[in-house]
Nucleic acid binder design. Structure first.
Lengths: 210, 210
DNA sequence: TGCTATACAGACCGGTTGGTATGTATGATA
DNA sequence: TATCATACATACCAACCGGTCTGTATAGCA
């Protein structure tokens, strides 16, 4: 309550921290973590090295915070993990894929998925990075698997498939689609791949009774 | 012919070049291109900077050569792009996937697909890198698409699908599966994803006549 | 109104980077 | 055998890297 009234100018540590996280996210998103320059991040954030090393012990910790506090939310929000599902899971997933395909920006076709970028770059190099990234993927996958399992219980998803395996494959296909499209710099390819994935999802519906 | 008889020791430029390419490949595979240190590559190759800059004008050119002369062949050979297909394409693809799943090494689960690594890291940063990587993906995708089209002509693949779209999705799914497994450090997840992909391929067979 | 912890600013540092310049041993050719 | 391009080896460099250190303005508290 006392916090909301405060009107310090350029002296709020939370604001400074957020500016650092946001600037670091953008720089890491484009160049990767290792190639991300602290000086560039500081310039973009409009603060100095003193501020950075006041809030974070080192560069790696800044990266971990970017994963946990920026990329994670970014991803889960974009893929509808946070919103409660309606209807049957197949239709819900298809709708999310369609919405994402329709809302693609040139920026994200060029740069791909920030979580996947970090996964590929840092997984073999830094255990803590890997764990943070992997945990986020797990949340996403588990949410999809849970939906599919619910669909099986409600009779909207065929029962001879493993929800967790299907969910992992769906997430992998999405990330792979973004990755290939990023390499080809082609939004059309990305849309096409997501369309095939929607078609695959269709095959998860129960076989029509005969 | 004259070449085969030569027995210079440590003075064959082709051998030196190959050692540089191989050492660069390993270092780039693990650390990424940007973080790959020339000094480390030189130490691993057992040559000095003079040799490197005699064969390549700069670090980037070494990277391009690694893509064209090492990674490309590595990938196409591993995924059966070079060998002529037998039987129907669905069975052929399933067999390749099964073989790859059976022959996974801890090394490649840890480090993922070298081509995909470079794609994700370098695509937004270097056009020439992107083109080289993308061209290799295209060769792979085109080969799969051609097989599927042939299957359609021979009646082993259902005709209401676009071979190129399916092929792109298959490649994307494979790369995504490797990427997720790399993040999770889980060969089991990779095998599971490839298994789901094999199941997806099954749905490409023509519907049984009624 | 002093006092102290917080929240920075900015100069500075050793190490590493990709790249260059120079020197030299080798092998083919004339 | 003399010549000369090739194929390196090695010393060296400026730029940049992440990180540290010291100084200082501010804000809450006694």
């Amino acid at each position: 309550m006392a916090k909301a009234m405060v009107k310090r100018r350029g002296r709020d540590p939370d604001v400074t921290r957020d500016k650092l996280l946001q600037a670091a996210f953008e720089e890491i998103y484009r160049r990767g973590f290792q190639a991300a320059s602290l000086d560039t991040i500081l310039a973009k954030a409009g603060v100095t090295k003193g501020a950075l090393y006041h809030h974070f012990p080192d560069k790696a910790s800044l990266g971990y915070a970017v994963v946990d506090e920026v990329v994670k939310g970014f991803l889960l929000e974009r893929w509808g993990v946070l919103e409660p599902p309606s209807r049957d899971p197949v239709t819900t997933l298809q709708r999310i894929l369609r919405r994402r395909a329709a809302n693609l920006t040139a920026h994200e076709v060029e740069l791909g998925c920030p979580l996947n970028n970090l996964a590929q770059e840092m997984s073999p190099l830094d255990q803590r990075f890997r764990r943070g990234v992997s945990a986020t993927f797990d949340i996403w996958t588990a949410a999809v698997a849970k939906d599919l399992a619910r669909g099986q219980a409600e009779g909207t998803v065929r029962k001879n498939v493993d929800p967790r395996k299907i969910a992992a494959f769906v997430v992998a296909s999405i990330e792979g689609s973004f990755g290939l499209a990023k390499s080809a710099q082609s939004a059309a390819m990305l849309r096409s791949n997501l369309e095939v994935l929607r078609w695959f999802l269709e095959s998860l519906r129960p076989a029509p009774k005969r």
